[in-house]
Structure formats: C-alpha cells, structure tokens
Design a protein around this nucleic acid. Structure first.
Length: 288
DNA sequence: CATCGACCCTGCGGGC
DNA sequence: TGCCCGCAGGGTCGAT
C-alpha cells in the first residue's frame, strides 16, 4: 500500500531510467485504472522527452517537453518495474514504456487496478504549469513550500475526526492509512478526536510524527505490508519500519503494554492504544 | 463550500 | 475441495 515514502522510493529508482530520456514508445497493454484521465491517449507521449520526474503526495509526474503531462498513481498495488525486454509479460502488466535502453523497459503493473497512468493537461499554480490532477491535492510535508503554520491552522478548523483529516489529500498529501495510524500513535492522539478540539501544540506534534515516521520509512527504502509493493529494481521493501499501531491488533503497546485496539473506520480500520491515545471529546476540553 | 459515505477492483484467507 | 463472504484501501463523485 504505497504511501509517500514508497512512492518517493519508486521515483528515485526511476529517475536514472527516465530523466532526460526520449520516450521511444509507450503502450497501454491492458486498460489501467478506472480513474485514468480521458484527456488524451497515453500514446500521445510517444516521442516526447522526459525532462524530469516529480512527486507530490502519492502522485508521480513525468514532466515532458510538451504542453501536456504524463501522470501516474500507484493506487494500492501499482508497481513500476525495470525489466528485460525479453522477459514475459506479467499477468497484470498495464503499461510498457521504452525509454531507449538497449535491453530494458519500464513496466507498470497493477493487480487491483486502482492505479493508473494517464495524460493530463497543464494548469497554472504559483506561476508554474503543473498537471491538473496533481494540482488538486495539497503540498506534502516534504515539499520545500509546505507551510506548516497554515496547515496546522487549517486542521484546527476541521469539523471531522483527526484521522479523516490526515487522510484528506487536499489538506496535506501523502499520508495513507498505515502512516496515519503510526503518526497518531506517536503523538498519542486518538484517531476519532475531533480535529477542531486539538490544540496547536498537539497538531504540531502530530505533524512532527508524520514527518519522522515517513522519514524513517524513506530512509529504509519504503515500507510495505506485503510484496505487492516492489521498488523499481524488483526489490521488496518489506517491513523495513517497525509498525507500532497499524496491523498490531491485540499486540501489546510498546509504550504501556495495553492491547492495541482496532476499530472500523469507513471501509477500513484504525489501530490505536486505548490507554496512550485517549479520546478527550467528552471530557470538556477547553480550546486555546 | 464542507463533510460524508458509496463505489471502483482483485486476491486472499477464514468459515463452513 | 470449493464456495461465499469480508477485508484490504487509494481517489473520486454524488448527496446532503
């Protein structure tokens, strides 16, 4: 389940294969995700030069020398693999990209088809042209222009559970279910605490936790729950980071020994320590 | 505009 | 052995 660190690992792995290269051919082998843009067919990128490869949150942007962009999202199970051209097609191969290497090609593979590769049009943001889909999401916490003060204030105005706000990519991008649970555990905040009940100090601590847990995962080359995530070299980033909350139901909390609890959260789950992470919403917390 | 929940999809594992 | 069901969860979109 790729989140920011995993996508960044993929980006770093892909850069040497794509940056400055001309797209010799790009072909949709099997229709990709159902959310793919219909702006133009992917093959429109044939012959374009890839000037750079960027990431915002979980989105990848192949910057082209064209007036449109090539964008990708890994969804839940998407992978980019650099494979020998001779090797047989994977069962879930979606897109094949030839950047001129003599023996190798880049393949986008996705089992659950929540991921996609698409052409997108460019729009203005802060004086720059960026992909439309990429522009709809907020900056992530590693972006040099990330404005922490602004984001903290915005979070404090949200009338939603803090976990929901963490996953809202229009507030801050890059956080998924795993790192949301991990950051909340580290900051000792209950996932169902109302965001507008949090003090600035608490939100700041939460954002520090988000950044530190993601930095650690990134340093390890990305975390994954299983082998659905494989980096571009085909090497799994399996369990590189110690998970303290996510997937730890009934395991003892490493801080206090209390059993980690799992509760339903929409279509998914939240994991937390009921002792370290109290929900204070009914205890008359005063604001300010 | 803000918020919420349904929905897209496939593989896997548990229960029977 | 095989079937059914629930679960996993990104982003998007319609309803309120």
């Amino acid at each position: 389940m790729p989140e920011l660190p995993e996508v960044e690992t993929v980006r770093r792995g892909l850069v040497p294969w794509v940056k400055g290269k001309k797209i010799k051919s790009i072909e949709v082998v099997h229709k990709g995700g159902n959310r793919a843009s219909t702006f133009a067919p992917v093959k429109s990128a044939n012959g374009a030069k890839i000037k750079d490869l960027h990431r915002r949150g979980k989105f990848l942007w192949f910057e082209l020398d064209r007036d449109f962009a090539l964008v990708a999202h890994l969804g839940m199970s998407g992978q980019f693999l650099v494979q020998p051209k001779k090797s047989p097609d994977e069962k879930h191969l979606r897109v094949r990209l030839d950047c001129g290497d003599r023996s190798k090609e880049i393949r986008f593979i996705d089992q659950r088809t929540f991921g996609w590769v698409a052409i997108d049009d460019l729009v203005y943001e802060s004086g720059k042209m960026i992909p439309r889909s990429y522009s709809r999401i907020a900056l992530d916490i590693f972006d040099p222009d990330f404005n922490k003060v602004e984001v903290v204030a915005r979070i404090q105005k949200k009338k939603s559970a803090i976990k929901k706000v963490l996953l809202d990519q229009s507030v801050m991008s890059g956080v998924g279910n795993i790192y949301a649970d991990e950051a909340l555990w580290r900051a000792r905040i209950h996932p169902e605490r109302m965001a507008n009940s949090l003090k600035a100090d608490e939100v700041n601590e939460l954002l520090r936790s988000v950044k530190s847990v993601m930095s650690r995962a990134l340093k390890q080359g990305g975390t994954s729950f299983d082998d659905l995530y494989i980096n571009v070299n085909g090497e799994s980033g399996y369990f590189a980071v110690q998970l303290e909350a996510y997937g730890q139901e009934d395991e003892p909390c490493s801080r206090c020994g209390t059993q980690i609890k799992r509760i339903a959260f929409g279509n998914r789950s939240s994991h937390f320590c009921p002792k370290c992470q109290k929900n204070l919403k009914k205890s008359g917390v005063k604001r300010g």
